[in-house]
Design a protein around this nucleic acid. Structure first.
Length: 277
DNA sequence: ATAGCTACCTGGGCGC
DNA sequence: TGCGCCCAGGTAGCTA
């Protein structure tokens, strides 16, 4: 569910409330949520203090302060993960709480995840990145994001451009919603071969992806229902600004042509046959 | 090496 | 009302 803007909303919320907090207790309520954890996650977390949360694409991690400066709590929200912060006295009533961490200052962090694709793990840092993030490409908002490198990599892919945009080892952070929106803004059909797009076309779609995700972030992310919420349980408002995603059969906002819905790489894909060529 | 399919889950909505 | 089917914002891992 959550793509880069939604994960960044969560990261900012955590940065505000979690940084400097110390873990006092951890309860695992569903073992699948810690399936990649080596050993006992409670043992790996209790007594440690959270540094400022960081993010690459849809991947989130919270470095653990000394005495464990080489470790971090790695978090992936999967399709339906939420990080909710509550006073310990006001626990969320969700039936999908997978992990809870009691912190000092009377805070509880709850990991809620209906579909259990998300996970937590305490992992080793490898330089500035946690091990599970090492193979993920920079996202378009990072200092180290290199438009030419990403364009070049896309140009050499013999696959449909929509599929390539979803490949997190090429450019990270783009998911199904923002891939469709970026291709609409760039005027490119999702099934076009990446290999036969011009470099200016490739750069246009990458910059469109960055723009649409920046706008979504300003509005608190995209929420279709209560599944995606920030650390305070609130929804974002970008869903009302989507031009093609979820609008199959409706009129294009630009030209009133009917928006088509097809399947690309097994994912529902929306485009305007008039505006996108 | 690369591209593409499948599995991993739960739940909501739809048609019968 | 209920059952079965399809769909959903992600990714790892397998196969060709």
């Amino acid at each position: 569910m959550p793509e880069l803007p939604e994960v960044e909303v969560v990261r900012r919320g955590l940065a505000q409330h979690l940084t400097g907090r110390t873990v006092e207790a951890v309860r695992v309520l569903h073992p699948r949520a810690v399936r990649d954890q080596n050993g006992d996650i409670a043992e790996a977390l209790v007594g440690y203090t959270f540094a400022e949360p960081e993010r690459r694409g849809k991947y989130l991690w919270i470095p653990l302060d000394p005495p464990h400066p080489t470790k971090a709590l790695f978090v992936h929200l999967g399709m339906s993960g939420q990080m909710l912060l509550n006073p310990t006295t006001a626990q969320p009533s969700s039936t999908h709480i997978r992990i809870q961490a009691d912190l000092d200052a009377g805070l509880t962090l709850s990991f809620i995840d209906q579909r259990t694709f998300g996970k937590w793990a305490v992992v080793e840092m490898q330089g500035s990145l946690p091990l599970p993030v090492a193979h993920i490409a920079p996202d378009p908002f990072e200092e180290c994001f290199d438009l030419s490198w990403a364009s070049n990599k896309i140009k050499h892919k013999h696959s449909e451009i929509k599929r390539v945009l979803l490949d997190q080892t090429v450019v990270s952070g783009i998911g199904n919603i923002y891939a469709d929106e970026a291709l609409f803004r760039a005027g490119i059909r999702p099934r076009r071969s990446a290999h036969f797009l011009s470099r200016p076309q490739i750069q246009r779609v990458l910059l469109a992806a960055r723009d649409v995700m920046a706008e979504a972030l300003e509005q608190g992310g995209t929420s279709f229902d209560a599944l995606y919420v920030n650390v305070d349980g609130e929804s974002g408002y970008f869903a009302r600004s989507l031009n093609v995603y979820g609008r199959g059969g409706k009129q294009c906002v630009n030209c009133e042509t009917e928006i088509r819905k097809i399947v690309v790489g097994g994912r529902g894909t929306h485009y305007c046959p008039q505006c996108q060529r």
